[in-house]
């Protein structure tokens, strides 16, 4: 399978490294090679039809800040359309305003008959139906396990292993940063601002934490899950959303006296698609601490199924991308037909 990596930030580099690390698995398990034949970031492009060395790409990015030597010059669309490869691995950052540039990259690849594996929430949270229809129309696959919960395999679990189940509802913690902050507020009695600063110092929260603490990141993921698992036609804008920035240490303390913790919970059921802080009894699976993500699926035959995992990180997100690449190879989609 010949792949091109779009976006060469933390996730893109992690994907390149993992492709290098799993050469033997591709060969032994599928009698195939996964070859990176191109990669581009916001300013540069590199390509070689015979393959590029993942280690060299990562080293060049680390050394120069660019993945390629030649400038991209706005030619990404043309490159995706005309260059010979099988699968676009799209890892550009999430943009929830207009989903660009990832949306254009994904659209272009699908229309050019190329599979897409993406970790980017924006295009899916805003244009899920359009993109899945485009993939179906062009008889290619769009896979997006890495877009929700990093290494936590909730989408493929629901759509493939739990295919025979009727899934009534879903609820979970989809943002590790908020979970860390709420947990520190409870454990140390910290005010919100101090817990946030601590998270920023530890590199858990971004310098601009809005996406996390206002529930934007969780709402994007919930919109994707509502479409992918429940067949709803919703966008990020349809998700009811309340963040955690107004929560006080007094509120956390009152809940704690009643053996409850406060968590930012995403919930999909027949009444709502909502992200909001909720009180969770101590000992409940969703009372989980740290930065883990966790999702509970309520099903008719299997009952409650809970899955947890690291929601972000270079290797963790790359692991989810890898699972999608393997699924493509497993279905004989490694090479374009």
């Amino acid at each position: 399978m010949k792949v091109v990596i779009a976006g060469f930030g933390t996730v893109g580099q992690g994907v390149a490294e993992v492709i290098g690390m799993r050469r033997e698995l591709f060969q032994k398990g599928f009698r195939q090679k996964v070859t990176i034949v191109g990669a581009f970031d916001s300013s540069s492009l590199v390509k070689n039809p015979r393959g590029l060395d993942p280690e060299v790409l990562v080293a060049r990015k680390a050394g120069t800040g660019r993945v390629g030597k030649r400038p991209l010059d706005g030619g990404a669309e043309e490159f995706i359309e005309e260059y010979d490869f099988d699968t676009l691995i799209e890892t550009t950052p999430t943009n929830i305003v207009d989903a660009e540039p990832g949306l254009t990259y994904i659209r272009t690849a699908l229309n050019a008959g190329k599979n897409v594996v993406t970790s980017n929430k924006g295009p899916l949270a805003l244009k899920f139906r359009e993109l899945t229809s485009t993939a179906a129309k062009n008889k290619v696959q769009l896979r997006y396990e890495a877009s929700v919960g990093g290494a936590m395999p909730v989408i493929n679990l629901s759509r493939e292993l739990l295919r025979g189940e009727q899934i009534y509802s879903l609820r979970g913690i989809l943002n590790g940063t908020c979970n860390f902050i709420l947990n520190r507020m409870k454990d140390e009695g910290l005010p919100f601002e101090q817990a946030l600063r601590e998270a920023q110092e530890m590199g858990i929260a971004e310098r601009d934490p809005t996406y996390d603490i206002d529930g934007v990141d969780s709402a994007c993921k919930l919109a994707i899950l509502a479409n992918a698992i429940f067949g709803r036609d919703v966008t990020y804008n349809d998700v009811m959303r309340t963040g955690i920035r107004s929560i006080t240490e007094d509120a956390i303390s009152l809940a704690s006296e009643q053996h409850m913790v406060v968590r930012l919970i995403g919930e999909i059921n027949d009444k709502r698609v909502e992200v909001s802080p909720r009180m969770v009894p101590v000992g409940h699976p969703l009372a989980i601490g740290g930065t883990l993500n966790i999702v509970q699926l309520i099903t008719d035959l299997a009952g409650d199924i809970t899955v947890a995992g690291r929601g972000a990180g270079r290797k963790e997100t790359a692991s989810a991308v890898l699972s999608d690449l393997l699924a493509l190879m497993n279905e004989g989609r490694g090479k374009r037909r």
Binding site: A255, M260, V262, I265, S276, P277, R278, M279, V280, L286
Partner: peptide, 11 residues
């Protein structure tokens, strides 16, 4: 909504 405070529900 009317009095502009935050509401946190139980599960």
């Amino acid at each position: 909504d009317k009095h502009n405070y935050m509401l946190i529900r139980g599960l």
